[in-house]
Simulated assay, not measured.
Amino acid sequence: MTAISLARQVGQALKARQWRAVTAESCTGGGVSAAITEIAGSSGWFDCAFVTYSNEAKQDMLGVRAETLTEYGAVSEPVVKEMAQGALIHSRGQISVAISGIAGPDGGTPDKPVGTVCFAWADTTGWLLLETCCFRGDRQSVREQAVARALQGILDRLNQMQ
């Protein structure tokens, strides 16, 4: 399923719940929010996007703790957890997704190879889900897969709540 068709479904589910989404993106560089804002009327169910590529931006804009970044690295579940929670705190959204990964072609390590992407989804009920995926392909492919997974995670949560 394409990111746009997923975004359309996310929008319908958010609208039905009268919720707004917020994104906190690193390796996707705003790709999730771009897919969302392709949909006409998304201003009714999308609040804002934080594109926090640097560690400093993650700290300044989302409240990610320096200690978390030092201990686990930017591409980690503890960091995306703090990103997702910070996005909710610093927005008017009720559900968030945070993404940090290594899209390549460089930057991978044996522990975190190129294609490693960490996700966190959170909402204002206190629900939180963490996931790490290892996508295959070039930089563009990894980023596209990450955008689709981020949207699917939001949709899954909203569908669970019905």
Rank of each mutant, 00 (worst) to 15 (best):
Q145V: 04
E131A: 11
Q85G: 05
A122H: 05
F119T: 02
A16P: 08
G31K: 00
S33T: 15
P105N: 12
Q162W: 10
R8C: 08
G73Y: 04
C27K: 01
T70V: 12
K81G: 00
A122N: 05
C118Q: 00
V114Q: 09
A74S: 09
A49Q: 01
A103G: 08
G93I: 01
G31V: 06
V142K: 01
Q94S: 10
D123G: 06
I36T: 12
V64F: 04
C134G: 07
Q12C: 15
P110S: 14
F50Y: 11
T37A: 14
W127M: 13
T68L: 04
A84D: 10
G126H: 08
S54Q: 06
A98Q: 01
T37L: 11
G126T: 10
V22M: 06
S26P: 04
G104I: 08
P110E: 11
E71A: 15
A40I: 15
R8Q: 14
W121Q: 13
E144N: 13
K58H: 03
E131F: 00
Q12L: 15
A87L: 07
G153Y: 05
G153S: 08
F46S: 03
G73E: 06
E71P: 07
E25S: 03
G86P: 01
T116K: 10
R136Q: 15
D156P: 07
L130H: 09
E71W: 11
T125F: 12
A13I: 09
E144M: 09
K58C: 07
D138M: 12
E71T: 13
T124V: 10
L129K: 15
Q162E: 13
I39S: 11
S42F: 14
V147Y: 02
I36M: 12
S141D: 15
R65H: 06
G73T: 05
A84W: 06
D156Q: 12
N159W: 11
A87C: 12
V75E: 04
L158R: 02
V32N: 07
F119K: 01
C134R: 08
A84P: 00
E77G: 03
I102M: 04
S42V: 15
V114P: 05
S100Y: 00
A24W: 02
T124I: 13
P78E: 02
G115K: 06
Q94W: 07
